[in-house]
């Protein structure tokens, strides 16, 4: 069990008061549900029930939940290939997510997109992206559209550390800055771009330092601390909503699983993974905090995990009972 210092409790005192017990419990529940979804996803893959690949974000739940909860109804989301958590935290139905993962007609994308492309346009979730940095220039267009339509929406675009080394990142951050666009650029730094460690891919201490080059504020937070992420993204979103423009938020986190199903993880040690799991697990940390401040009891904490598993059990049952897409409809959706 991770012990939290009184400092941490002190630091979040006001935020805990503001959010209130229900919101805090919901955030912890979401983290559990995401983890249960992904653990089951992996299991389904191992059982040969899933045909494609998947990118698991186990260990990164705090970033997804902290960021999504900092946004408001009507805001936009663009995210990346390791995106189950973001999507679920944005409010997606686990049944339809699991159905998409299993390639069923009842899935969010009618089984055409799969794990890497889940979108729910109705809730302004503009989708996960299989191309590293692919969503970042699109966020500029969303920001531009918000500005031209004069709404108070904000676009949250989430990408990994690897994406910050794509040219598209530089073009997009510059454009967002010169046009003062309402965008939160959230770099989810899980410390490896597939096998490439950030220390080898960057010659700077923090990815958020790059913001300065575009005249944007940049901040780095502990991505395994859900309230730290919530706080940073809330501030960035509020700034964007006030018409003051974009922010680059870097959330430092850690992926427990391999890059995808083929990863033998030769580039890091088991000790390193264990070190993160034992000392920085986001669910354990948030659970401890909520226990210490008396928002939840031990029993409630255990029930949350059980509830998450039940939600996912139901999602799997729904998906298994769902029809596969009809081959006769294969041409659907290419053109509007």
């Amino acid at each position: 069990m991770i012990q939290l210092s009184q400092d941490v409790i002190q630091r979040y005192h006001d935020l805990i008061e503001t959010l209130g017990p229900e919101a805090l419990k919901m955030m912890l529940q979401e983290m559990h549900t995401i983890r249960a979804f992904e653990e089951r996803a992996e299991q389904l893959y191992m059982q040969g029930k899933v045909h494609g690949t998947m990118h698991l974000s186990i260990g990164q739940e705090a970033t997804a939940v902290g960021a999504a909860n900092a946004m408001q109804e009507g805001d936009y989301l663009l995210n990346h290939h390791r995106g189950h958590g973001h999507c679920m935290a944005w409010g997606a139905d686990p049944n339809r997510m699991m159905a998409e993962f299993m390639g069923k007609e009842t899935g969010y994308c009618r089984g055409r997109g799969g794990s890497m492309h889940i979108a729910d346009v109705e809730s302004n979730n503009l989708g996960a992206n299989g191309i590293v940095a692919g969503g970042i220039p699109i966020a500029v267009g969303v920001g531009l559209s918000i500005k031209m339509r004069r709404t108070s929406q904000v676009c949250l675009v989430i990408f990994g550390d690897g994406a910050a080394n794509e040219g598209a990142f530089h073009e997009a951050l510059n454009m967002a800055s010169i046009w003062t666009l309402p965008i939160v650029f959230l770099c989810e730094n899980n410390q490896y771009a597939m096998s490439m460690p950030v220390e080898k891919a960057f010659n700077i201490e923090k990815i958020s330092q790059r913001a300065a080059a575009y005249g944007l504020p940049g901040v780095t937070v502990d991505g395994n601390d859900v309230l730290a992420v919530y706080s940073a993204v809330s501030q960035a979103a509020a700034r964007a909503r006030r018409g003051e423009g974009a922010t680059l938020v870097e959330a430092k986190t850690y992926r427990y699983k391999g890059h995808s199903k083929s990863d033998k993880q030769a580039y890091r040690s088991r000790e390193e993974v264990r070190y993160w799991q034992e000392n920085f697990d986001p669910i354990m940390r948030f659970t401890n905090l909520l226990l210490m401040v008396g928002v939840i009891t031990e029993t409630e904490a255990a029930q949350m995990r059980e509830r998450a598993v039940a939600i996912i059990d139901e999602a799997v049952a729904f998906s298994e009972a769902s029809p596969a897409p009809n081959v006769a409809d294969i041409m659907d959706g290419v053109y509007a």
Partner: peptide, 17 residues
């Protein structure tokens, strides 16, 4: 920024422009 121009068009088009 040609990638940026294309992306700006896509994002704007996706959101009603």
């Amino acid at each position: 920024s040609e990638a940026g121009i294309a992306g700006a068009c896509i994002g704007a088009a996706l959101t009603g422009m």
